[in-house]
């Protein structure tokens, strides 16, 4: 076997010193198949990468496209924000006041946060700072389980179980109200808030904890004086994202609020949410009608509000900059 019989990598042990400098390799400028494959893949994944941007713009454009006619014709900004009269199907004089819907959404989301914020943050602190090993893993799986229950099932629970519970306990005629939807929504928003809050706690470097513990602080003192202050922005973002989640929730509030237009006086009043209005009415409108476009206008409003909430959450997190 002479060296020339063997292809390139095989000659490493047989190569003679004098042959080495003269190896002919002409691949310096030849961009082979692999080079082009790499470029092609780079292009493909780049398109995938910017797809999120495309879709966000797409959503805004398509929702606006359907609603824009209404914005320029029937839309009355003052009426939209101040009038509680959402009467799109009135044959003589349809009105599009979203004030009651906005208040409905706000009251339910507000109550949900009162329920969910302390419990989620508490759970995050327990799971992140106190629980260890197996119990910690179990709790995390259970929180994931909580997130796995679909909103229509939550709505059904509000409609059936919670409804009769509220009627029985508080002796009110109807159990589908702010209280019902608020509790349901609170339980729905809790897992996402717990998960994000726990991530925020975990982002605090262990060296902080060790330093405080070295000074004789108890676990709780460490959490209260070191961990919570250091992670407060992340916790705030968790709360904001929970608010966004509650604000945008549809099926559960559609089923558990009672779905009647009302400016609530108490937590036992039925209300109607922005999202639920779209879900309930879109199927009954003629495509392109004023009502149809008014519903898309509600959609634009929802999109902008949640966009702002998410943007704020992102800015709050980015604002810390102490990674």
């Amino acid at each position: 076997m002479t060296p020339t019989d063997m292809s390139r990598p095989a000659d490493i042990s047989t190569r003679q010193p004098d042959s080495a400098p003269h190896r002919a390799r002409d691949d310096a400028d030849r961009r082979g198949f692999d080079w082009y494959v790499d470029k092609a893949v780079q292009l493909i994944v780049f398109v995938g990468g910017i797809s999120a941007i495309i879709f966000i713009f797409g959503i805004f454009i398509f929702v606006t496209r359907e609603g824009v006619g209404f914005l320029f014709e029937g839309f009355d900004l003052v009426e939209f924000f101040t009038s509680p009269r959402w009467m799109p199907t009135s044959s003589s004089n349809p009105t599009y006041g979203a004030a009651a819907l906005i208040l409905g959404t706000a009251s339910v989301t507000g109550l949900a946060m009162i329920v969910a914020v302390p419990f989620s943050l508490g759970a995050a602190v327990y799971i992140g700072e106190f629980a260890t090993g197996r119990s910690r893993e179990t709790l995390k799986v259970l929180v994931e389980l909580l997130a796995a229950i679909p909103s229509v099932v939550w709505g059904f629970i509000g409609l059936s179980i919670m409804n009769s519970l509220i009627v029985r306990i508080f002796d009110v005629p109807v159990g589908l109200n702010v209280l019902n939807a608020g509790i349901i929504l609170g339980l729905m928003a809790a897992p996402i808030m717990t998960t994000i809050a726990e991530d925020a706690l975990r982002a605090v470097p262990d060296t902080y904890r060790e330093a405080a513990e070295a000074m004789g602080a108890t676990r709780w003192q460490v959490v209260w004086r070191v961990v919570l202050p250091a992670s407060k922005n992340g916790l705030m973002a968790a709360v904001l994202l929970g608010v966004g989640r509650g604000f945008g929730e549809t099926m559960a509030v559609l089923m558990a609020t009672g779905h009647s237009i009302n400016i609530p006086d108490s937590i036992f009043d039925s209300v109607r949410a922005l999202t639920a209005t779209i879900a309930a009415e879109l199927g009954e409108t003629a495509v392109g009608s004023e009502h149809y476009r008014a519903l898309f206008t509600l959609g634009i409003f929802l999109f902008i509000i949640t966009f702002l909430i998410n943007l704020t959450a992102d800015l709050v997190v980015r604002g810390t900059g102490d990674r």
Partner: peptide, 19 residues
């Protein structure tokens, strides 16, 4: 965009799907 896409309410996704 990813963060915001995750936060878009499901009913708005529905409107987008329809449109």
């Amino acid at each position: 965009a990813i963060i915001n896409l995750a936060g878009v309410p499901s009913i708005v996704h529905a409107l987008f799907g329809v449109g």
